[in-house]
Amino acid sequence: MVTPEDIKGWIEAGMTDCSVNCEGDGHHFEAVIVSPEFEGKSRIQQHQLVYGVLGDKMEAAIHALSMKTLTPDEAGA
């Protein structure tokens, strides 16, 4: 079963200076993702970036992922 730590690891491995806070029960997950790669991108493009990093796992392993994407500025980091 997929754990929130798996998802955190997958996303952080695929993005620059990325920090992920993920919670979930094995079926539904919620992730807050902060990365400078989101700067200058629309919300759709930000989510597409994360979906791109997760690739096939989005279809195969993760039933439902709710996400909030933030730039470091937006996160107040």
Binding site: R43, I44, H47, S66, M67, K68
Partner: peptide
């Protein structure tokens, strides 16, 4: 427009 997260936001 987007998926449910973006719609909600």
């Amino acid at each position: 427009i987007g998926g449910s997260d973006i719609i909600k936001e």
